[in-house]
Amino acid sequence: MESRNRIEFTSAFDYKVIYAFTVNDEKHNGLIKIGDATLHTNTPADSLSPNCRELNQAALTRIKQYTNTVGIMPVLLHTELAVKTMKSKKDGSVELKAFRDHEVHRVLENSGIKKAKINDTTGREWYRITKETAIEAIAAVKKNYANLSNSVSNEFIPIIFRPEQKEAIERTIKQFKNSPELQ
């Protein structure tokens, strides 16, 4: 009997998708979460308009990965490709670059919008904003703005480390202080 080789084709493109969603319950009232997902598709980027079926499906798949077990129903507010234009440092040409949700979070925080705390949860990507503000923050990232108004801010925004990160930093500092060969 002859064995046949199976050829499997994978998607030609992987795109980052940025999304905003909420949950219609008392705990999330007025809050929006901004996240990102990866879309594997053969569809060209110029055919993936904001809130199209493929982008929405990629976002919902990602959202369900971390919400399915807690029994909440996400309400998808907005999706679009997470792509911005950047000037190449080498030759000044313009190139496309994917961006991540934390860049949108940074724009919001640089604009004075703090992360919302939901009871005692570890969820750190929720903001008390409108859908329009979420879309404006995504647009700001695409324009390479530091904040919603594209103004310069001198406000220092500290990095807040998770407990395990703090512990690793403290152990590293202690190791450096106690190692004669590192001094």
Score class of each variant (00 low, 15 high):
Thr38Phe: 06
Leu60Gln: 10
Leu55Ile: 00
Ser153Asn: 08
Cys52His: 01
Leu81Asn: 06
Arg128Trp: 03
Ser111Val: 01
Asn144Pro: 11
Leu55Arg: 02
Val141Cys: 07
Lys64Gly: 00
Ala139Lys: 14
Pro74Gly: 11
Ile160Asn: 13
Pro50Ile: 00
Ile173Pro: 07
Cys52Gln: 01
Lys143Cys: 09
Gly35Leu: 13
Thr43Met: 02
Lys33Asn: 11
Lys33Arg: 14
Asn5Val: 10
Leu182Ala: 15
Thr79Pro: 00
Ser3Asp: 06
Ser93Trp: 02
Lys114Gln: 14
Gln57His: 06
His40Phe: 06
Leu77Thr: 03
Ser88Leu: 06
Pro163Ser: 07
Ile34Ser: 04
Tyr66Ala: 00
Ser49Tyr: 03
Gln175Tyr: 15
Asn42Thr: 03
Ser111Arg: 04
Thr61Glu: 08
Ser149Thr: 14
Pro180Val: 14
Thr10Ala: 13
Pro74Phe: 07
Glu155Leu: 08
Trp126Thr: 04
Thr172Ala: 14
Leu76Val: 09
Thr79Asp: 06
Ala146Asp: 13
Glu54Asn: 03
Phe161Gly: 01
Ile34Arg: 07
Ile138Arg: 05
Gln175Thr: 08
Thr121Ile: 00
Ala59Asp: 02
Thr122Leu: 11
Leu55His: 01
Ile160Gln: 14
Thr38Val: 10
Thr22Trp: 00
Leu77Glu: 14
Ile135Gly: 03
Arg162Phe: 08
Ser11Cys: 08
Glu8Ile: 15
Ile173Asp: 07
His40Gln: 03
Asp25Thr: 13
Ala134Phe: 01
Pro180Asp: 09
